[in-house]
Amino acid sequence: MGYTLNFAAVWRSFDDLLLGLGLSLVLAFGAILMGAVIGLGVAFALMAKNRLVKRPAAIYVSIIRNTPILVLVLFTYFALPQLGVRLGKIESFVFTLAVYSGAYLAEVFRSGLLSIPPGLREAGLAIGLTETQIRTSIIAPLMFRNILPSLSSTIISLFKDTSLAAAIAVPELTFETRKINVETFRVIETWMVASCLYVFTCSTLAALMRALERRLALPR
């Protein structure tokens, strides 16, 4: 097929790829931080007894989980301005990904909360702790440990989802890759390097989360 690999052109633009990767990470972490706040609130709402609180939360989770994220991204960026909500590309994308991740994180938090035996709350009550003290000293640290494995996979898949920002021309890794591809025509090399960057970042994130898990593991 007469195609010889030549990475020189890609290396010349490697800085752009790294900047793109940096922006991808920023998008992911911005979204996760906001998404965690949404997710925690929704998780409590999902477990509420009051139907007026529970139903809306369940509907939100169901809608987000069953709608393609690309549609959500385009909707926020192109359709919301019609309603007067005009956001910049990056803000718009981070906002969408936060709302999107909120639904997934809510499920993560909810199962984390459910896995804590109710007796621990009672033991806290019995020594005179208030509900707030129980939440901060007992429930939160235990839930955080419980959810680390599923939190890790949610973070990684959100990081991968940042590639969709390319669809609204946010200059993150996928967008930069496509640009270099079009400019240099070193098609195979460009996509190879880009995928390797994604794979490398994902495995680094996974390793970091595993290290955190080991650090926080309870002796037994």
């Binding site: 097929m1 195609y3 991968k160 989802d161 940042t162 590639s163 969709l164 390319a166 669809a167 996928t174 890759t177 496509r178 591809n181 098609v187 195979i188 996509w191 880009a194 995928s195 994604y198 794979v199 490398f200 970042t201 994902c202 495995s203």
Partner: peptide
């Protein structure tokens, strides 16, 4: 599997589209 799971689907789609054409 690790490589595929570490790559965003959009990158797989774009790579498949551009690369397959290049290799004929």
């Amino acid at each position: 599997t690790d490589f595929i799971r570490g790559t965003p689907v959009l990158v797989l789609v774009l790579a498949s589209y551009y690369v397959l054409g290049t290799v004929g």
